[in-house]
């Protein structure tokens, strides 16, 4: 089983460290030649920057092909945005892979001063510490997407809402927070189990 970690920008080395802890030695993916993998992690980072580098590196189309034909993937934060079906408040030229049927709002919780940490309850996993950094908000979940965890959040302009923060559909898993920042490996295990 070969796992790739998209290494264009962001905290990809934190994902590598978690995988190493699970005795998986991933490939860093920067060009189409690196794409000989069975599953792929898209890290946290700046989604607009990663989007641009996906196109200039020639990775976007082949990777989209692999994902649309069912390759396993795990995305955190920017990775969730890139795997989503559609993105609100992104740049107009921003690409996404349409690998999971969710609509996300970029920076939906607000600027950095609104970044937060919290304790989640995750279906089938248990309590989990979660760090949200200028995180996306899942606005809509459709089709066969399961929501494994959500947070109750008060937005400045509306009442409290339940916001999904971990979603899964088949082999594609996404979280709007960063398990890789706190050494949390249980979501990586979930991702690896379905490959």
């Amino acid at each position: 089983m070969k796992i790739g970690v998209l290494a264009l920008q962001g905290d990809y080395l934190n994902h590598v460290a978690i995988l190493n802890k699970l005795s998986v030695n991933p490939v860093l993916i920067r060009t189409p030649d690196d794409l000989d993998v069975d599953g792929m992690i898209i890290p946290g980072g700046e989604s607009t920057t990663i989007s641009l580098l996906l196109q200039s590196s020639g990775l976007y189309l082949p990777l989209r092909g692999l994902l649309n034909s069912g390759m396993a993937a795990f995305g955190t934060c920017a990775g969730m945005i890139l795997l989503a079906k559609s993105v609100i408040d992104g740049r107009p030229d921003q690409v996404s892979f349409d690998a999971i049927d969710i609509v996300v709002r970029r920076n939906g919780f607000g600027r950095q001063v609104a970044s937060f940490e919290t304790e989640l309850a995750v279906s089938g996993v248990g309590p989990m510490k979660a760090v949200f950094i200028r995180a996306p908000v899942v606005e809509k979940v459709s089709g066969e997407v399961e929501v494994l965890s959500s947070v109750n959040y008060s937005f400045p302009d509306s009442a409290d809402r339940q916001v999904p923060v971990i979603c899964r559909s088949g082999k594609v898993l996404v979280s709007s927070f960063h398990p890789e920042l706190v050494g949390e490996d249980r979501l990586h295990r979930l991702f690896l189990e379905r490959i």
Binding site: L8, D11, Y12, C77, S115, I133, L181
Partner: peptide, 18 residues
Amino acid sequence: HATGGVLVKRGLAEMLRG
């Protein structure tokens, strides 16, 4: 939910890497 802690502060720097 806790804002302004060390993890979220250093966390944004982690996201800017590369």
